[in-house]
Design a protein around this nucleic acid. Structure first.
Lengths: 330, 330
DNA sequence: CAAGACTGGGCAACCGCTTTCCGGGGAGGT
DNA sequence: ACCTCCCCGGAAAGCGGTTGCCCAGTCTTG
């Protein structure tokens, strides 16, 4: 393993000079020495040891991103946005996948803290359990106490910079659009009761429906993924319009109806949430609420890096996109 | 920032003892001191500084994964498999996204080397340019010279442990299946000419078609993504069966045909490659060649960590999955 | 009961790099 | 010709841990 000392010796200069040449410094180094050092480094195949550099500088150039599930396009898009922004700042990215286990999320914050990453991004829904949230907050505080920066994409529950998708408002806007098409009997594939994102989207939808004087939607809980949507879709009763709280569940629901010979949108209309890019070619095209996921990811990184005294909360509005999976029944 | 020294002082023990208690060691520490140290660490909110630990131990617990594009479900699945395996080994993951730029890939290897990661996984197709491959190899050699381990998912071109999907054979098997259904005039949406994965799949398909004595398929080049498939599908002429070299392109092709009123599979049959999970509910269901992506990712990590003197090459066979996007024309 | 084998605690060297501080030499000013 | 200032090179003190080694005390064991 080639060290800076090897390079310095080979070039016949001091450690200090070699360091200044190779790893940047405010100080100048004479042209001849500089060339000698560079040549030596090249010949020896020197690569700076970042661990040593981080230790000496007291600051790393790594950020951490903690996501629930990278194979879920929602998180992939979010992470991609954040990673692009990070690359733009010359930062490396360490990714932790919790597979939806809140304990894992806490553990990852501790780990990222140990890594002394410059910032941590928490992507993904909070859960409603205040005990878990409390422990997460404590771990975050511990991290921030030693100079770490944190941002979160999701609910503003952690007292940190947050990019908060307007889940409630998005659900409500969608409900109003669907009611505007003449739908009256709704059902919601509501996901898990403890997941805030699912809850907020569902609540916005239900409240809006009720404000319009329509009968309250039938709520069907279940997992937050494709299979959850598939299963839950079997219990939507006589609803003419079904809202799945995310696109992946909506696609599951569509598959379920298809398998059971229920036509969409003729027999039942289906809408989702997120507007996942990979799903845009689905047939029938999915009505949904579009969220600018990549922007949200990069925005979260910006917030984290810039974070000042009082946390900033950015509310991101979704945009209802009507497509052929819902029918106009007026 | 709380250091081990702070903990040791607060607990009234030496640095060595505190280290042995908190960060593991073969040496025993008496129960009372151990308790004192643990309490002090907890009170102070101590987190070991991994940079220091890495430096002192001379080995980090981080691995690097370099992918082309995380929002492409192919890479997401691969990365997820590798990350699960890494988590099982107690390793952290640093992810680099090249956005399909080979120079970026080389740069990331250098960076991962600087980070002294335990292993680097290179996921994704090689390109046919030998100059670029040569530079990548040199960078990898430099990394391995200092004890780094490397594995690759893709073509066995780097002289490292490799998980090699049988792209050529998969393309050929698919061709034989499709010909078996009575198809005669084929077209291939072949992706970019320089991308080995695209090339191999295409070559396998073409060779198999010709071996069967059928007319050579029409080859349409274009980008490796959804839009590439969409555009290329406009030029498939009178082919009755179209092979897109990956699922994402195939979905683009399906969209193109739909937009132009060409019915699939009635007017034209379409097949892809990879069997992307997110796309399994597509309508019509896509005929494809299934690759066990998550397993390939975790396998690559295993290979890298275990890597011995001579590189191992694992060939992974794909499995043809016939679904409704192709028609039996016999 | 003495001697050797363990146990467990602490000192200090070291991991590889950054950066402060010091000093020598050349340029510019008077 | 002398002084000052600036420029640039090097010595050395950290950064926060790990670990080899020494040593005192306790446990066997003949």
């Amino acid at each position: 393993m080639v060290t800076l000392e090897d390079v310095a010796r080979q070039a016949g200069v001091s450690l200090a000079t070699a360091s200044r040449v190779l790893n940047g410094s405010t100080r100048q180094v004479g042209a001849d020495l500089r060339a000698r050092v560079e040549r030596a480094a090249d010949e020896l195949g020197y690569r700076a040891n970042m661990a040593a550099q981080t230790l000496a500088r007291g600051a790393s150039n790594v950020i951490g991103i903690v996501v629930h599930d990278l194979t879920d396009p929602y998180f992939a898009a979010l992470a991609d946005g954040a990673m692009r922004a990070a690359a733009g700042e010359g930062l490396l990215v360490m990714v932790g996948t919790t597979h939806r286990d809140p304990e894992q999320e806490i553990a990852y914050v501790a780990t990222m803290n140990a890594q002394r990453v410059r910032a941590v991004l928490l992507a993904g829904s909070r859960v409603s359990d205040p005990e878990v949230t409390g422990r997460l907050r404590r771990e975050l505080d511990r991290y921030r106490a030693s100079g770490g920066r944190v941002a979160c994409v999701g609910q503003d529950l952690l007292g940190v910079d947050t990019v908060a998708p307007a889940n409630y408002e998005g659900g409500a806007a969608l409900a109003r659009s669907l009611a505007g098409l003449g739908h009256i009997r709704f059902a919601v594939l509501a996901g898990p009761p403890h997941l805030m994102t699912a809850r907020d989207r569902c609540a916005g939808f239900v409240d809006a429906v009720e404000e319009l004087g329509l009968p309250g939607p039938r709520i069907v809980h279940g997992p937050f993924d494709r299979d959850g949507g598939y299963t839950a879709a079997a219990e939507t009763g006589d609803a003419t319009c079904v809202f799945a709280v995310n696109d992946v569940m909506a696609v599951g629901a569509l598959a379920s109806y298809r398998d059971r010979g229920v036509r969409v949108p003729d027999d039942v209309s289906v809408a989702g949430f997120d507007d996942i890019a990979t799903l845009r070619d689905h047939v029938p095209a999915l009505t949904t609420v579009r969220l600018p996921l990549a922007d949200m990811g990069s925005r979260a990184l910006e917030l984290a890096l810039a974070s000042g005294e009082t946390p900033t909360v950015d509310h991101v509005q979704g945009e209802v996109v009507l497509r052929e999976s819902v029918r106009d029944v007026r």
